[in-house]
C-alpha cells in the first residue's frame, strides 16, 4: 500500500470531523444571537406598533399584535397638538430646544476636549498631569452635587433658564469626558509628527488642524456619540435649569406622559417616546459606520 492511499481516509475523516461541529456551533451561535436581538428589539417593536394604533385598539387587547386599523394620528398629535404642561403645542418646540442645546454643546465640548487633549499630550507643561487628574475627577462628580453651585453660576452669568445656559452646563459637565477621550487618543499619537511640523514652521493651531485633527476621526466619532447621547438624554439638568421656553425633549416627554389630564393616550405617548429616542439612534447608525471605518484604517496603517 502506498502512503498516499493510507493518508486518504485519514484526511477525509479529519476534514469531516472539523466541518460538522463547526456548522453546528455556527448555527447555535446564530440562534442565540437572533434570540438576543429579538429580546432587545421587542420594546421597540411594542412602541412602534402601538404608536400606530388607535387608542381603542390598545385598550381592547394585545400589546404585541400588529395594528388592525393603522393610523399616524398619534404621531401627528404627539408632534404638533398634544397637551404639554399647559399648552397644546405637541413636542415640536421642545424637540427644537433640544436640538438647539445639543448641537452647540456637543460641538463645543468636543472641540475643547480635543484642544485639551492636544495641549496635555503635545505641549506638556509643569503640572499637566495634575490638571489632567483634576479633569478626570470631574467625570466622577455626580450630577446632583453640581446642581446648586451651577444654578448660582447661571444666575450670576444671567443665563438662568436659557438654552445657552443649558449649553454651558453640558459643556462644563462633559469637558472631563471629552478631555479624557482625546488625551488618551493623542497620547498614542507620535510626538515626532508634532516636532517635524514645528521644524516645518507650523504654528500651534496649524499643527492641531493640519496634523492632529485629520487623524482624529475615530475619537471624534466616539466623543460625539457619547456626548450627543448623554446630553440628549439628560433629564436632571433640563428639569433643574430650564424655564418654560427652554425645556428640552426629555422633560417635555415626561410632562406629556405624566401630566395629561383625563384619558392616558398610550399611542401618543409611544409616538412621543420614539421621537425622543430617534436622534440618538440616527447618530449611532450614521456615525457608527464611520467609527468602524476609522478603526480599520488605523489598524492597517501599522
Amino acid at each position: 500500500m502506498t502512503s498516499a492511499v493510507s493518508q486518504g481516509p485519514l484526511e477525509a475523516s479529519r476534514a469531516s470531523s472539523t466541518v460538522a461541529p463547526n456548522r453546528l456551533a455556527r448555527a447555535l451561535i446564530y440562534a442565540a444571537l437572533i434570540l438576543f436581538a429579538i429580546y432587545y428589539l421587542l420594546p421597540l417593536y411594542v412602541m412602534l406598533v402601538n404608536s400606530l394604533k388607535p387608542l381603542d385598539e390598545i385598550r381592547q387587547g394585545d400589546m404585541l399584535s400588529l395594528p388592525m386599523a393603522g393610523t399616524i394620528e398619534p404621531w401627528l398629535k404627539a408632534w404638533a397638538t398634544a397637551q404639554i404642561g399647559v399648552q397644546p403645542t405637541g413636542l415640536k418646540p421642545y424637540f427644537m430646544n433640544s436640538i438647539l442645546m445639543v448641537v452647540p454643546a456637543v460641538f463645543i465640548s468636543t472641540a475643547l476636549g480635543a484642544l485639551n487633549g492636544y495641549v496635555l499630550t503635545k505641549w506638556t507643561f509643569r503640572g499637566a498631569d495634575i490638571v489632567f487628574g483634576l479633569m478626570l475627577l470631574a467625570c466622577f462628580i455626580p450630577f446632583q452635587i453640581v446642581l446648586i453651585p451651577m444654578a448660582r453660576m447661571l444666575g450670576i452669568l444671567g443665563l438662568a433658564g436659557t438654552i445657552p445656559g443649558l449649553v454651558l452646563v453640558h459643556v462644563v459637565y462633559g469637558l472631563g469626558f471629552t478631555t479624557l477621550f482625546f488625551r488618551n487618543y493623542y497620547a498614542a499619537f507620535p510626538s515626532e509628527l508634532v516636532k517635524a511640523a514645528q521644524i516645518d514652521g507650523a504654528s500651534f493651531f496649524q499643527i492641531f488642524r493640519r496634523i492632529l485633527l485629520p487623524s482624529s476621526g475615530p475619537i471624534i466619532v466616539v466623543t460625539v456619540i457619547w456626548q450627543f447621547t448623554n446630553i440628549w438624554n439628560d433629564f436632571l439638568f433640563g428639569a433643574s435649569f430650564a424655564s418654560v421656553d427652554s425645556i428640552p425633549m426629555t422633560v417635555a416627554l415626561n410632562n406629556l406622559v405624566s401630566s395629561s389630564t383625563g384619558v392616558k393616550e398610550y399611542n401618543v405617548h409611544f409616538a412621543g417616546a420614539i421621537m425622543a429616542a430617534l436622534p440618538t439612534l440616527i447618530v449611532y447608525i450614521v456615525s457608527g459606520r464611520y467609527f468602524v471605518r476609522g478603526l480599520m484604517a488605523g489598524a492597517v496603517k501599522g
Binding site: P190, E192, L193, K195, A196, A197, I199, R210, I211, P214, S215, K301
Partner: peptide, 12 residues
C-alpha cells in the same frame, strides 16, 4: 532640516 529616526511622515 531634520530626518527623524521614525520618519515622522504626516499620515494624512
Amino acid at each position: 532640516a531634520m530626518v527623524f529616526q521614525s520618519y515622522a511622515l504626516y499620515p494624512n
